[in-house]
Computed example of a mutant assay.
Amino acid sequence: MKTLIVDDERLARIELRRLLQEFPKIEIVGEAANADEALQLIEELEPELLFLDIQMPGRNGFELLSALKGSAPDVIFTTAFDEYAIKAFEYNALDYLLKPIDTERLKEAISRIEENFPAGDGQPKAEINRTEKILGQDDQVFVKDGDRCWFVKLSKVRLFESMGNYVRLYFDDQKPLVLKSLNSLEERLDQQAFFRANRKHIINLAWVDKIEPWFSGGLLVTLQGGDKIEISRRQTIRFKELTSL
Rank of each mutant, 00 (worst) to 15 (best):
S232F: 12
L169E: 03
I110F: 03
T131C: 10
E44L: 14
R10A: 08
S162T: 08
K156G: 08
V178P: 09
K180T: 15
A38H: 02
E230W: 08
I211D: 04
P24F: 01
G225K: 07
G225F: 08
A12P: 01
N92R: 12
R13P: 04
L11T: 15
D7C: 00
F117D: 02
R234I: 00
K99E: 05
N92Q: 12
L219W: 01
L94E: 04
I14W: 07
F171M: 12
A72G: 13
Q55W: 00
G30Y: 09
A109S: 11
Y96I: 06
R105L: 15
I54E: 02
E48H: 10
V141K: 09
R196A: 04
L41A: 10
Q191S: 15
G217D: 10
Q235N: 12
G146I: 01
I14G: 06
S111W: 08
I14L: 14
L242D: 09
K175R: 14
I237V: 10
V75R: 02
D138T: 10
I128Y: 11
S184V: 13
Q137C: 06
A93Y: 02
Q40P: 12
I26T: 01
I203W: 01
N183K: 15
S71F: 14
T103S: 11
N34S: 11
G217K: 10
A85E: 03
P124Q: 08
E43I: 14
D172R: 14
D102C: 12
V208S: 11
D139P: 11
T131H: 11
A93D: 03
Q137P: 02
Q174R: 14
V75F: 03
N198I: 04
D95Q: 00
D102P: 06
I86F: 10
G226I: 04
F194W: 02
L135G: 05
I110D: 02
A72W: 05
E15F: 07
L4C: 09
F215P: 00
A33T: 15
R148K: 14
K25I: 13
A72P: 14
A119F: 09
D36F: 15
V178S: 09
P47C: 12
K107I: 13
T103V: 10
S244Q: 10
E241D: 07
G61C: 11
V143C: 03
S162P: 04
S232L: 12
L223Y: 07
K180P: 06
D8S: 04
S66I: 12
A67D: 14
P100S: 07
N198L: 09
N34F: 06
T243R: 01
F195K: 00
I28N: 03
V143W: 03
A206E: 14
R196K: 10
L169W: 06
P47R: 11
L97K: 04
L50M: 06
E108Q: 15
I134F: 01
P47A: 13
N165W: 08
A197Q: 04
K240S: 06
I76P: 03
D227R: 00
H201I: 04
P24M: 04
M1A: 01
R188Q: 13
S162F: 03
R112E: 11
D227T: 08
M163E: 11
R18M: 13
Q137M: 11
V157L: 07
D209G: 13
D138F: 09
E83D: 15
I28H: 00
